[in-house]
Design a protein around this nucleic acid. Structure first.
Length: 481
RNA sequence: GGCCCCAUCGUCUAACGGUUAGGACACCACCCUUUCAAGGUGGCGAUACGGGUUCGAAUCCCGUUGGGGUCACCA
């Protein structure tokens, strides 16, 4: 590459939910730019006025904020190369379309959408192997074209692709990819509504914004020859092309919200940590040299290399994401940090904090950490900590029934514990068991059932300590103690 | 259908001509143990197929098969 610092970009289209694929591209683009000491920019591609969704742009930018990916330039961080919202640059794109028209690299086409649709259908019926534009208006003389345009006839501007020869795309990941020009289509550059298509707009903006590396999904590979041709027509240098492998969903198809795959917002709602999501995305198609699976974006910046990218598509596995998230909860974040995360999560998605007692809340979170996969798990696992009005499930009811006669004694034994700590409680429980020649497995279940209503709960001594003497004794009494 | 890309356990991946093909998730078993987890140990499980090249191929080449993408006045 040249001596200039790398500039990468993502160019999401504001049409709906913030996509996981966008987060994936943002990760690789920003990691590479940071590693190269370059810049990473976000340009919103909203030239399709039909699919435009006003709220979507903000949600995409919010997603990046949440993930902690900070663009060097974006619609929220404009600079002299902006604006970073493509529709605001339409005048610019029109100018370059005209330039292409003037130089003969492009031409006007007057076909109506209806005509095109009909001809395409006919081609399909004929089972033509090639279904692109039939190039009808390519034969128009310049005079004729000018005359019809001047007469007010509507038109699009199409690229005049070469009819023979080959175009070679040098992809960083795949080497030289050769396309026969005969396969190329005379793509629309400027639409009837005066807005550019992606092909024109992206190439113009990439060039004007100084983008050096176009890192995008593999679906763009086959239109890269078109992009090369546009760049050539404008006399501009081409960037380095890097087409990343697919993110797939379980059926082997492209990962997509439409198929029901979770969006980034869905993961956030689920209680997935941004760091864990990024980490997971980082191991889709790429791996750390030492095989480490738990790594941060900083680690990735340090170790990143295109040589370690695997080209087969990767199937997104939510189960593994959750495991990784649990790993973050247990091993990457400190207990205090987890307390803060749970708190933030509950105020955003839950019914708020279940208690005003900060110390009690923190103690409960600490108890639950090894049992949590997502922040969303917390509420459903901790009901009995916040209210005395909790359900008693079947197994717990059975444990209570089987040891009903033990309960009064047990309660008395616990009442005798002066120093209410897990150690003392444990000691008292053991003592009780020994004194009555009972196994621990006989004395603990009824206590657990009485104070939690479920057998699936943390270590009993710790559980009792956190619940507190008063609560525990009251619940035991209520259960028949 | 034409063109393009891709191909290691069910899934994510390691291997850059020489390994009993390694690790992780999931699953199963065992250990720890007061339940549930967490943690530990072990097990199951892959180079799609066929030809070459080579002393030697998961690795290089060709073909087949399979999967995906693309062929919009969407990106």
């Amino acid at each position: 590459m040249s001596d200039q610092a790398a500039v990468t970009r993502i160019a999401p289209s504001p049409t709906g939910d913030p996509h996981v694929g966008t987060a994936y591209q943002a990760l690789f683009n920003s990691v590479f730019a940071r590693q190269q000491g370059g810049r990473f920019i976000v340009r919103i591609e909203d030239t399709d006025r039909n699919r435009y969704n006003a709220a979507s742009e903000g949600r995409i930018l919010d997603m990046l904020d949440w993930l902690g990916i900070e663009p060097d330039a974006s619609p929220r961080r404009e600079d002299e190369r902006g604006p970073y919202t493509q529709s605001q640059r339409a005048e610019l794109h029109r100018g370059y379309a005209m330039q292409l028209l003037e130089s003969g690299a492009a031409y006007r086409a007057f076909d109506t959408p209806e005509e095109l649709e009909e001809r395409r259908r006919a081609a399909e019926e004929r089972k033509d192997s090639y279904l692109g534009y039939d190039r009808r208006d390519r034969a128009l003389t310049r005079e004729e074209s000018d005359r019809r345009a001047a007469a007010g006839e509507e038109f699009v501007i199409r690229l005049k692709a070469p009819l023979e020869g080959q175009t070679v795309v040098r992809d960083r990941l795949r080497g030289e990819v050769v396309f026969d020009n005969a396969q190329l289509d005379d793509k629309v550059l400027l639409k009837r509504d005066g807005f550019p298509t992606y092909h024109l707009a992206a190439m113009v903006d990439d060039h004007l914004m100084g983008v050096t590396h176009v890192i995008r999904a593999e679906e763009w590979l086959t239109s890269t020859p078109i992009h090369k041709l546009i760049l050539e027509g404008l006399g501009w240098q081409e960037p380095e092309w890097i087409h990343t492998p697919w993110l797939l969903s379980s059926g082997g198809k492209k990962y997509s919200k439409r198929r029901g795959d979770p969006s980034v917002e869905d993961f956030r709602r689920m209680g997935i940590l941004p760091g864990a999501l990024l980490n997971y995305l980082g191991m889709m198609g790429w791996s750390m040299p030492n095989g480490e699976e738990v790594f941060s974006v900083d680690d990735m910046v340090r170790e990143f290399s295109w040589d370690r990218v695997s080209l087969g598509g990767s199937t997104f596995d939510v189960t593994k994401l959750k495991w990784l998230n649990g790993k973050y909860l247990r091993e990457v974040l400190s207990a205090d940090e987890v307390v803060e995360r749970v708190k933030a999560y509950l105020s955003e998605f839950g019914a708020g904090l279940p208690t005003d007692d900060e110390a009690y809340f923190a103690a409960v979170v600490r108890l639950m950490i090894p049992r949590l996969e997502t922040l969303g798990d917390f509420s459903e696992m901790t009901g009995y900590f916040w209210t005395d009005d909790y359900a008693t499930d079947e197994k717990a009811a059975k444990a209570l029934a089987q040891a009903a006669d033990l309960l009064p004694d047990l309660r008395a034994a616990l009442e005798g514990v002066n120093d209410w700590t897990a150690d003392s409680i444990k000691h008292a429980l053991h003592e009780y068991a020994e004194a009555h020649e009972l196994k621990l497995g006989k004395v603990m279940p009824p206590v657990r059932a009485a104070v939690a209503g479920t057998m699936q709960s943390p270590d009993l001594a710790e559980l009792l300590e956190v619940l507190g003497r008063e609560r525990v004794l009251a619940r035991l009494a209520r259960a028949g103690g």
